[in-house]
Design a protein around this nucleic acid. Structure first.
Lengths: 194, 194
DNA sequence: CCTACCGATCGGTAGG
DNA sequence: CCTACCGATCGGTAGG
């Protein structure tokens, strides 16, 4: 029971932190401000967390986990490259739009992690690029994607997807599926052999 | 002469600040650290600038000016939509890659501007989107781009372009023209009526 | 461009 | 979860 309450409180801290970090960035957000929005004293926050960076760490690595969970599902399905890329884009946009504050922190503030965490983070990033690259490679083998620079292609796909957190509004007129499909239309069409 | 020296020193401060802000972000960079890299005392920096935020302001609005200078040239040329979009992408990538540190600050740290500057900044951003949108509209009128959501299309183009500062290396194997052309190939091909 | 310094605020701890 | 507090550091100023 005590554990249940503590977990809920910690999740609350996490949510408020995500919102503050998103709006102001990690370094510009103080523990006093975080505590203020929670309605407690700054020192009290430390009953639930070890340090300010622990919060950032949790946000960054939990987000990474979300992306990889989706990636693993897609990798284990039997699909042609075009369908797989569309599925990968949809899954990626789903994770971003369903965790919009955490996504902003994930993309912006990972560089404020200290060693060795920042290095672990960079490794995960590379692995995710490798996953996307395998889809592009499959498409080239299938003869459906043109043979442009694979690394550049992956970076372009990531670029187009990752900026979504900057403008996506949960109550906007586009659902995440519509965003993903439009994005997939442009990117897949753009990569196709004509 | 005194003015010339002062101007050079101010530019030096600006360059070092761009590099530090890029690596650490604006809030996480202290004036003492900036002074340290310049080889002077923190208090001495204030002989050349009024405040820390003034440096950020100069970086952000000078970058905006660069983007708009290019945009104005392109708007005044007589071109079909496809060529105009390619020119716009090339110009945009040129500005980013030629000011790689300042670009990172521009995209990351504008939100640490105070009023009224942050609002001015947002207005400029909207104007730039309107400019890109006019190109998309032209393309739809010409029947070369498909009739998808214009706002979304513009945001996608900006997304794909703006992430470049994250991975571009001046000594990498791709020139900025190659990046721009590859990007234009994917985006224009992706937007085309088939 | 420096020394000397300001008030404010930072992340975090001790001890209850 | 609080009071009381720590040493460190912040952006910036006075006065030369």
């Amino acid at each position: 029971m005590a554990e249940l309450i503590q977990k809920t409180r910690k999740e609350h801290i996490r949510e408020v932190a995500e919102s503050l970090f998103r709006r102001q960035g990690y370094p510009a957000t103080s523990m006093r401000q975080l505590a203020g929005e929670l309605g407690i004293e700054a020192a009290s926050v430390y009953s639930h967390i070890k340090s300010k960076e622990e919060i950032l760490r949790d946000i960054c690595f939990d987000m990474a986990k979300e992306f990889f969970n989706e990636a693993e599902i897609i990798q284990n399905l039997n699909m042609d490259a075009e369908s797989r890329l569309r599925a990968a884009i949809t899954a990626h946009i789903k994770v971003i739009t369903h965790n919009i504050d955490a996504s902003a922190v994930f993309f912006h503030d990972w560089r404020h992690l200290s060693e060795p965490y920042i290095n672990d983070f960079r490794v995960l990033r590379m692995q995710y690029q490798t996953y996307l690259r395998s889809i592009i490679k499959q498409g080239i083998l299938e003869g459906v994607f043109n043979k442009s620079d694979e690394k550049f292609t992956v970076l372009t796909i990531l670029s187009a997807m990752n900026w979504t957190y900057e403008w996506y509004k949960p109550d906007g007129k586009m659902t995440y599926q519509e965003i993903a499909n439009n994005l997939a239309d442009i990117l897949i069409n753009g990569l196709k052999n004509s």
